[in-house]
């Protein structure tokens, strides 16, 4: 833990769905956590909010890879977002936030910058 960010425990390994995403609520708002067992590292976290619709749905998209880049396709309008960087493959000027994520025992922890925290927390 540092002064500027916080490794927040958001769920456990049992909550994850292989090859797919789940949504968690963090101090920075809704975040989608993806578990791709064949990737190294296998965990990815990006914002759950689809920038094109404003709806919280990205965790419910289909995962996969395009030219080797791990991606999720928005379930609404099907744009692909890189799971590593959050950059939209169809329009590189659009980018969702991505978060460092790791396993701490069987707990999944997200690094949420303090500056992004919402004061109207859960």
């Amino acid at each position: 833990m540092t002064a500027h960010s916080n490794w927040e425990a958001v769920c456990t390994v049992d909550d994850l769905v292989p090859e797919s995403g789940i949504a968690v609520w963090t101090e920075a708002g809704p975040v989608a956590v993806f578990y791709l067992p064949h990737h190294l590292p296998a965990l990815f976290a990006i914002s759950h909010t689809d920038p094109f619709s404003g709806a919280n749905v990205l965790a419910r998209g289909i995962t996969g890879d395009l030219k080797g880049e791990p991606v999720v396709a928005s379930p609404l309008y099907k744009q692909h977002f890189s799971l590593r960087t959050g950059i939209c493959m169809e329009d590189e000027s659009v980018r969702v936030k991505s978060y460092p994520v790791l396993l701490d025992g069987d707990r999944v922890r997200l690094k949420v910058p303090v500056s992004q925290r919402r004061f109207s927390a859960a």
Partner: peptide, 22 residues
């Protein structure tokens, strides 16, 4: 079934039709 879940569009996964606001 677990193996099939990640293959489906959200509509199939959650067996309902997603609308514009999620």
């Amino acid at each position: 079934a677990t193996d099939h879940v990640p293959l489906q569009d959200t509509n199939d996964t959650f067996m309902a039709n997603m609308q514009k606001n999620g």
